[in-house]
Design a protein around this nucleic acid. Structure first.
Length: 202
DNA sequence: AAGTATCA
DNA sequence: CATC
């Protein structure tokens, strides 16, 4: 369990946890996952489509539609989600210190202009398990708020290779992504930002 | 409200 | 940036 380089409102931020070679290896490992489980943009229960495109790997995938947020065992194409790639699991085990494997690796893709509103991760059964976030590609402006909606917030630019651990008292803190710095990274040939979030669901 | 528009 |  490496020491975080930075702590912000209870979030452990590991700046540049992954070197460029490790980032590249991760992208290579994600390629077959994205091929088997293509990105899609879910809608919220108010009928608004999200600007972020997403898919998942693991036992469950995060999903939203008119019925609300939930975890699903299958991609909308009817297939089970692909397995979580080993390099992702290795990061989870090292940074969290947990032997238990995550049930879900949500893969969020932010193109230029994509945003994620402030929210809590609360669709899991047990909030004592942390959520792990891995940033790849373009920089993203990450905003951290409070357990209650509203109030003052703090922002930090997350860069390719940064890893954030959201756990303990900070597990239910609101967070979101305000903007993407398009073209800031060459990691992804087509540009954009990929964020992986690993969670224990059951 | 994992959203958007509006306001100071 | 706060509020809805």
């Amino acid at each position: 369990m490496p020491a975080p380089t930075l702590r912000l409102r209870g979030f452990d931020i590991h700046k540049q946890y992954l070197d460029p070679a490790a980032q590249k290896a991760l992208i290579d490992a994600l390629r077959p996952v994205l091929k088997a489980a293509p990105l899609f943009s879910p809608t919220t229960r108010f009928g608004k489509q999200m600007s972020v495109r997403m898919t998942s790997a693991g036992k469950y995938g995060w999903y939203s539609d008119a019925r609300g947020y939930r975890y699903e065992s299958h991609h909308p194409n009817g297939q089970p989600w692909p397995a979580i790639p080993d390099p992702v699991l290795a990061i989870w085990h090292d940074v969290t210190g947990h032997d238990r494997t995550p049930d879900c690796c949500l893969i969020n893709y932010y193109g230029d202009g994509a945003r994620m509103g402030m929210h809590q991760d609360r669709d899991e059964a047990d909030f004592t398990w942390p959520v792990l976030s891995v940033s790849l590609g373009d920089d993203g402006l990450f905003r951290i708020g409070n357990e209650e909606r509203g109030g003052k917030t703090e922002s930090i630019w997350l860069e390719s290779g940064d890893v954030v651990l959201m756990g303990g008292a900070a597990r239910l803190i609101h967070h979101g992504v305000d903007r993407i710095r398009a073209g800031s990274s060459r990691l992804l040939p087509k540009g954009g930002r990929i964020n992986l979030t690993c969670r224990v669901v059951d």
